[in-house]
Deep mutational scan, measured.
Amino acid sequence: MTVLPKDIPGDSLKVTVGTANGKPGDTVTVPVTFADVAKMKNVGTCNFYLGYDASLLEVVSVDAGPIVKNAAVNFSSSASNGTISFLFLDNTITDELITADGVFANIKFKLKSVTAKTTTPVTFKDGGAFGDGTMSKIASVTKTNGSVTIDP
């Protein structure tokens, strides 16, 4: 049996954390987006972790974005102690894959008090994996961190 590389060099799934701005007490939304989904033969499963400074940001909610089908079954998240974990699994293993680019999740943060303008990162942590529509590992994932700026 011969195994051929399935990824064209330079191609990767792009996962990007967005940015937001606000004043202390505001609730802002930071999107997590996927790009080049079709090039990577869709997404059938993924789990990953984001870190944030809990002294500056309070997670209000984490909701599935419009590219997630049947989110009540296929999407899960949790947030505590400065870490947000995400889990997606197409429970049907074929019919509810992520097949389009767009917003995977929206994180709502309540901004805490600061004395001066502060930009705090929302960054990928170690761990996690992504699988394509056949549940094979997506070897190349380009992750881009985001941030939230609090301006009193």
Rank of each mutant, 00 (worst) to 15 (best):
M1V: 13
M1T: 08
T2K: 07
V3S: 10
L4T: 12
P5V: 06
K6E: 09
I8D: 10
I8T: 12
P9Y: 08
D11V: 12
D11A: 10
S12N: 14
K14Y: 14
K14M: 10
V15Q: 05
V15K: 06
V15E: 07
T16R: 12
T16G: 07
V17Y: 07
V17Q: 11
G18Q: 11
G18P: 10
T19N: 13
T19M: 09
A20K: 07
G22P: 09
G22R: 08
G22Q: 10
G22D: 08
G22L: 07
K23I: 09
P24S: 11
P24F: 10
G25W: 09
D26C: 13
D26L: 13
T27E: 11
T29E: 12
T29S: 11
V30P: 02
P31E: 10
T33A: 14
A35M: 09
A35K: 13
D36G: 13
D36P: 13
D36Q: 11
D36L: 12
A38V: 13
K39P: 10
K39F: 14
K39M: 08
K39A: 12
M40N: 15
M40G: 09
M40T: 12
M40V: 08
K41P: 10
K41H: 09
K41V: 11
N42I: 10
N42R: 12
N42L: 08
N42C: 08
G44C: 06
G44E: 04
G44Q: 01
G44N: 00
T45Y: 00
C46M: 14
C46A: 01
N47H: 02
N47A: 01
N47E: 00
F48P: 01
F48N: 05
L50P: 05
G51R: 13
G51S: 10
Y52T: 13
Y52D: 04
Y52P: 03
D53V: 12
A54Y: 08
S55G: 13
S55V: 14
L56V: 12
L57G: 10
E58W: 08
E58H: 08
E58D: 11
E58G: 09
E58I: 14
V59G: 06
V59Y: 10
V59A: 07
V60P: 06
S61T: 09
V62D: 05
D63L: 12
D63A: 12
D63F: 07
A64I: 08
A64D: 14
A64Q: 07
A64V: 07
A64C: 14
A64L: 00
P66K: 11
I67L: 12
V68E: 12
V68Y: 07
K69H: 12
K69N: 12
K69W: 12
A71R: 10
A71V: 12
A71T: 06
A71G: 14
A72L: 13
A72T: 14
V73F: 06
V73Y: 05
V73N: 06
V73R: 03
V73K: 05
N74H: 00
N74T: 02
N74V: 01
F75L: 12
F75C: 05
S76Q: 04
S76A: 14
A79V: 15
A79S: 15
A79F: 15
A79K: 15
A79H: 15
N81D: 14
N81A: 15
G82C: 15
G82E: 15
T83G: 15
T83L: 04
I84D: 02
I84W: 05
I84P: 00
S85R: 01
S85E: 01
F88C: 06
F88V: 01
F88Y: 04
L89M: 02
D90A: 03
N91R: 02
N91K: 06
I93P: 02
I93R: 02
I93F: 15
T94R: 02
D95M: 01
E96P: 01
E96G: 03
E96M: 00
L97C: 03
L97F: 00
L97M: 06
I98Y: 00
I98V: 04
I98K: 05
T99H: 07
T99Q: 07
A100E: 06
D101K: 06
D101N: 09
G102M: 15
G102S: 04
G102C: 06
V103Y: 04
F104S: 04
F104E: 04
F104K: 03
F104Q: 04
N106D: 05
N106R: 05
I107M: 11
I107P: 01
I107W: 00
I107L: 04
K108S: 06
F109Y: 04
F109H: 02
F109P: 00
F109K: 00
K110Y: 02
L111Y: 03
L111E: 01
K112G: 02
K112D: 02
K112N: 03
K112T: 04
S113G: 08
S113C: 05
S113T: 06
V114P: 08
V114M: 09
V114E: 05
T115I: 14
A116P: 06
K117W: 01
K117L: 04
T119M: 12
T119S: 09
T120M: 03
T120R: 14
V122F: 12
V122W: 01
V122N: 07
V122R: 00
T123L: 06
F124N: 10
F124D: 02
K125F: 03
D126Y: 15
D126A: 15
D126P: 15
D126I: 15
G127M: 01
G127W: 03
G127Y: 00
G127A: 03
G128Q: 02
A129L: 01
A129G: 04
F130C: 04
F130K: 00
G131W: 03
G131N: 00
D132N: 10
G133I: 01
T134V: 05
M135Q: 03
S136E: 00
S136H: 08
S136Q: 02
S136V: 01
S136A: 02
K137L: 00
K137H: 01
K137M: 00
K137F: 00
K137Y: 02
I138S: 03
A139Q: 05
A139I: 04
S140N: 05
V141M: 10
K143Q: 02
T144W: 01
T144Y: 07
N145L: 05
N145H: 03
N145I: 04
N145R: 08
G146Y: 06
G146M: 04
S147P: 04
V148M: 06
T149V: 15
T149L: 15
I150V: 14
I150N: 14
D151W: 15
D151R: 15
P152H: 14
P152N: 07
